[in-house]
Structure formats: structure tokens, C-alpha cells
Design a protein around this nucleic acid. Structure first.
Lengths: 227, 227
DNA sequence: TAGATTGTTAATCGATTAACAATC
DNA sequence: TAGATTGTTAATCGATTAACAATC
């Protein structure tokens, strides 16, 4: 019960694509590798060793090699890893190329800030639309993203195969918006609201709250007297 | 080398305050407990069991009891934990009461969204000021937070004992802003910029990037075919 | 009382690190 | 060649879970 059957050695059938499930520890590091590799690439660096990657990201070379080998990315003795190939592999593995459209619910400060981020394109992500219930702002644009009526959301999700939703509404409305999206067939939800939301097992939820991140930092800083 | 000497059984000297170092796994759960407890309290619930907390936050009762016992918070057999006391203990342990002022650097979409969040007060956090280099917006207010000239930042950090800084500037300026704050004596930095920043050991950094959180979610959703 | 729930010890599980033969 | 660096196995470390006596 609650056991998610690990250890099943699911190789990807027929395609050469790496698509086995990775531990969340690795998944959290992958975007950081990608970020660094993109930067190296833009600087014209051709080869990089696990040692150098580890130094930069404050990891051990061992961890880096373990991670990359799990991904089936191979390097060369004495030279390390080819930056260009590694960057492309990481980009592919992160799966953003095949990623669907994203809907952002709530066109307040946080929702519009999210919509205005320029980093999405670099990662192969695209925002379909912002949704709000305030008639005064419906129809406006935030950096080329239209604000639509939240009533249009369910139909848009179905029609345009939107798989990801971002909840940027006040806590009191979060679960309601969540249910609406689940009902319409959303696959994953990024929750920016400061409240726990429940979904059925087949819908992934990731919490990303700035206040909680800040609070973690506060804790670390205030308990630092010992060092 | 790089070994941070764990296992040192540092009891708090003289005061009864719990201030030993907790593992980051626990620190990440604490704000979630607090959030839930605050909600229970507002609903008038008096007692809560580890089982119920675990159900709600999708943990095991065992983990919950371990976490709370590490915090020296005690419950009662048969009744569980007293909501009011537990809430206050968590609030105290998170240390936000003694937290200093916060500076936000970069008054773009993300910085202003951060400044406009209403959740800070509930957590005992206060934003001192927003900083930017754009003369056209200096002097403006975002929900009662003033936008000041970034040139004032070092002096403000020193004079008003600002211990926490939030980096909400473009990646190209992030390290520069970071260095400026470190130089002025900042204690912790929340980094929203999509680039790795380096600090000396005595300055804590916590990364919080929405794009990376979203990318993690994309990965989980796109590799879900197996379930 | 009987049953529920804690607090804590021991067992398990998983992630990180060390070590080293293979290789370029 | 000698030295550097990989890929992978084994060892270590830490976090989670199970189990159960104590207790209300």
C-alpha cells in the first residue's frame, strides 16, 4: 500500500531514448548541470571533466559521474565529457522539447511575473495563456501572453492539450482551481500558493513557494552561531 | 576537507531554546507543519495526532514523531499534540521572530511580486526595501515597499542590520549584486536568478528558481507513462 | 479496563562518497 | 610512456520506516 514498485528495470522499448525513472535527488541536479553546460557552450568550452563540474556546482566528482552514467551519457578517459553532446543529452533527457503548453492561473503579481520570465524559451517551455476572473484585466497582455477568462480554462486544457498548470491564486482559491484543472485533464501542477493542495495519484504536484524558501534560509542563518 | 563536523552535540547553553542544527530534510518539512498547524488553529482544532498530520502532508506518522521529538516538542499518549503549543513551538523554532529585515534587489516583475506577497507578516518576516538601478522607478512604492537606488544598498545593510538579501536581477548582474551584499555584511541570500552564485562559507545561499521547479515537474510528468 | 497514541530504538532503505581497474 | 580521467563496484553515511514498550 503506497508502495510504488521500484526496481522494475524498465528499459525504453525500441527507441534509444533514456526514459527510466530517476531518483528525485538526481532530477533536482539535472537542471543545474544543464544550466552550467549551456553557459560553457556559450563560452566556447569544448571539454569538461567531472571534477570541474563538481567544483562549480559544489558536488563531488563521484556524484557527477554517477549521475551522468545513470543517464547513459559517456565521457572519455583523460578528456572528460564533450560539452556540446552533454548539453544536448541533458536537454533531451529533461524532456522539455516534448513538453506541452503551460497555463498560469491568477494574473496577480506572481502570475504575471511568471509569465514575463524570459528563461522559458531557452528550456523549450511555452506559456499558452494567463487566466483570471477579474473582468477588468481579461484581454490584456503581459509580455505577449494574453489574460483570458478563467471560464475558458477547462476547454482550453482539452482543446490545446495543455498538460501543465501553474497555480498563482490566493490560498483560498487554490484547491478550487486545482480541482477545475484536474477535472479538465491536467497532468501536472506547479503550486505557488501557500496551502497544501490534493490531487489524485495520476496528477503530479510540485510546490514552489518563495516564502517557504525564504523561511528555510532564515532558519539556516539564525542557527549559524555554532560555526 | 569540506567536512563540516557533524555529530557535535551542541546543546543550547543556558536558555531552554532549541537551537541545535537540524538536517535539511527536517528543515524543509518544518514550514509545512507550521502551515498546517496555523490552519488547524484558525479552525479551532485543539488536538492533532501524528497520524493525522502525516495523512495531510503525505508523510508517515513515524517521520512526524521523529521530527517533532528532535524539536523537543512533546505530545500526549492517546490525545496527540496540542495544536496551540505545537504551532507556537514551530513558529519559535523557525526563528522568524528574531529575523532581520530583508532587502530585495531588482524591482522587475519578480522582485515586485516578491515584495507584494502578503504572507510575510504571518511568518514574522519584513521587507525593508526594494533596490534597483533604473532612475525612472526609484522612489516609487510597491505595496508600501519603497524602491531605492541600488547605490544605497551597502549603507542600508550596515546601518539597518539587514541580514537577508533576495536576488531578483538578470543572471548577468547576479554575481555582482551578490558580491556587493557579501561585502556589506549580508548573512544569507535567496537567489532567484538562473545562474549559480558563489559566496564565502559564512554566507548562506538558497536557490529558488521557478523555471527549474517547473522543469522538474515537466520531467516527472513526461516520464510518467510507466505508472 | 481496553484501546489509542506517544517516544525511541533498531532495521531498512536509498543516496553519496571512496576506491580502483580500465583506458586513452 | 606516464598521468589523468572515466565507469563502476563496494563502503559509508544519513534519512525514513517499522516496531514496540510506556502511558494516558
Amino acid at each position: 500500500m503506497g508502495n510504488s514498485n521500484p526496481g522494475s528495470d524498465q528499459k525504453s522499448s525500441s527507441t534509444g531514448e533514456t526514459k527510466r525513472k530517476l531518483s528525485s535527488a538526481i532530477v533536482r541536479r539535472l537542471p543545474r548541470y544543464l544550466l552550467y553546460l549551456q553557459r560553457l557552450k556559450s563560452c566556447g568550452v569544448k571539454w569538461i571533466s567531472s571534477q570541474e563540474i563538481a567544483n562549480f556546482l559544489e558536488l563531488t566528482p563521484s556524484t557527477v559521474r554517477q549521475d551522468l552514467s545513470v543517464l547513459k551519457i559517456t565521457g572519455f578517459a583523460k578528456r572528460g565529457y564533450e560539452v556540446d553532446r552533454l548539453e544536448r543529452s541533458l536537454y533531451n533527457v529533461m524532456g522539455t522539447e516534448s513538453a506541452s503548453e503551460i497555463a498560469i492561473i491568477g494574473a496577480g503579481h506572481l502570475g504575471t511575473a511568471f509569465a514575463a520570465q524570459e528563461e522559458f524559451a531557452k528550456r523549450g517551455l511555452h506559456i499558452f495563456s494567463l487566466y483570471d476572473q477579474n473582468p477588468n484585466i481579461i484581454g490584456q497582455y503581459v509580455s505577449s501572453v494574453e489574460i483570458k477568462d478563467i471560464k475558458d480554462l477547462p476547454e482550453d486544457i482539452k482543446k490545446h492539450n495543455i498538460q501543465l498548470g501553474v497555480i498563482a491564486v490566493p490560498p483560498t482559491a487554490a484547491q478550487e482551481v486545482c480541482d477545475l484543472m484536474v477535472e479538465a485533464g491536467i497532468k501536472g501542477i506547479l503550486n505557488l500558493a501557500l496551502i497544501h493542495i490534493s490531487t489524485p495519484d495520476h496528477v503530479e504536484v510540485k510546490d514552489a513557494r518563495l516564502v517557504i524558501a525564504l523561511q528555510e534560509l532564515v532558519y539556516r542563518v539564525t542557527t549559524k552561531e555554532s560555526d
